[in-house]
């Protein structure tokens, strides 16, 4: 099993619904966030292209945060989901420094926090909060090892890119372009 997410950049309008849903579902403290929206404008005027990306932890298959963690608090769970165990985290910041996506942050309570792919919902057979609220249905979550899952089909059918693959992380967010 390999959980992954596909984000359709052609459908995303950057409304931030996913960000708010995540904050409410996971009780993310005010002023912090586990996911965010990137607006990317490329080209030279008047030939400009605009892309919206809903971004979060990439749940890398080769996660540098897990490698650098001195206590084993950062670990890989079922389906390759990268999680932090607060009771083992000393808040040293090594994982934060090791993440090329800056997807982690120090929680005000001391431990390091990040996107969990809403694994608590997924275990109940639900979709992650961000996926379930997206008004344009641009987020697809599922098992990449299952060729019939929606995320597998989208990644197979559509042109896509992954971010900062040159950092050697093998990220599991697929941006459909």
């Amino acid at each position: 099993m390999r959980y992954a997410m596909a984000i359709d950049t052609k459908k995303c309008v950057g409304c931030s619904d996913c960000v708010i849903a995540c904050q409410l579902e996971n009780q993310v403290p005010v002023g912090y966030c586990r996911e965010w929206i990137v607006e990317s404008v490329s080209g030279t005027y008047p030939h400009l292209a605009l892309e919206f990306r809903s971004e979060r932890c990439h749940h890398c298959a080769k996660p540098p945060c897990v490698r650098c963690c001195p206590t084993g608090a950062s670990h890989v769970e079922e389906g390759g989901v990268v999680l932090v165990e607060p009771g083992q985290c000393i808040g040293c910041g090594a994982c934060i420094a090791s993440c090329p996506y800056d997807a982690r942050y120090p929680h005000p309570e001391g431990y390091v926090d990040k996107c969990t792919f809403c694994i608590h919902r997924v275990r109940e057979g639900k979709q992650p909060a961000c996926v379930s609220v997206c008004p344009t249905h641009c987020l697809y979550f599922g098992d990449l090892d299952d060729p019939n899952s929606e995320v597998s089909r989208k990644v197979a059918e559509r042109k896509h890119k992954r971010l900062k693959t040159e950092a050697g992380t093998d990220p599991q967010l697929y941006f459909l372009t």
Binding site: G31, C33, V38, E39, Y105
Partner: peptide, 17 residues
């Protein structure tokens, strides 16, 4: 090609900007 990025909704203390 020039690319300009605006990251909205993220200003995590000790991480951003």
């Amino acid at each position: 090609m020039e690319e300009e990025l605006i990251i909205s909704g993220r200003m995590n203390p000790k991480v951003d900007p």
